[in-house]
């Protein structure tokens, strides 16, 4: 396996080509703009959160590299039906995993298929690409208007 296959796994390539939930949500309750000035990755993340704190819908729109787009696409499919609190836990574990500070293969975790992004830790310049949508999602929940990776 080539070193880059660790980063560009088939699922990531596929989500980049056909991103899920890739649209502007008209009736979102929360949204936030995320920008990575280094790469120019630029996304809006939308959430519809019920009164019970459960995420009913997630979508995103914008442009960026394959890693940022696939990460956002997988995030949208992963968060639907989760509570805001659960989504924060996922964010924290995901962030630590891509930084190489948390190994989901060795510790109990809630990451499921998001473990695909574990290989990002070997590409320091791409960590922000993978985590941008997650920072932006938390920014939306916290009612920030915009989030930057710098």
């Amino acid at each position: 396996m080539a070193y880059s296959d660790e980063l560009y796994q088939q699922v990531i390539i596929e989500h980049n080509k056909k991103p899920r939930n890739f649209f502007d949500m008209e009736d979102s309750t929360h949204n936030c703009h995320g920008y990575n000035p280094l790469c120019g990755d630029d996304y809006e993340i939308y959430l519809k959160i019920g009164d019970d704190g459960i995420i009913q819908a997630v979508s995103f729109n914008g442009s960026g590299c394959a890693i940022s787009k696939a990460s956002a696409s997988l995030m949208t499919t992963f968060l639907i039906g989760k509570s805001v609190e659960e989504s924060r836990t996922v964010f924290e574990q995901f962030h630590k995993m891509v930084l190489g500070e948390f190994d989901p293969d060795k510790s109990e975790n809630v990451l499921g298929k998001l473990k695909l992004f574990k290989g990002v830790q070997n590409f320091p310049s791409r960590i922000k690409c993978a985590s941008l949508c997650w920072h932006t999602m938390v920014g939306a929940v916290d009612k920030n208007e915009t989030v930057s990776t710098e």
């Binding site: 080539a2 880059s4 560009y8 960026g64 590299c65 394959a66 690409c129």
Partner: peptide, 13 residues
């Protein structure tokens, strides 16, 4: 089809 940052990572390999 291939964003410039993906190009850079792939070429680096």
């Amino acid at each position: 089809s291939v964003h410039p940052h993906d190009i850079v990572t792939l070429m680096d390999q």
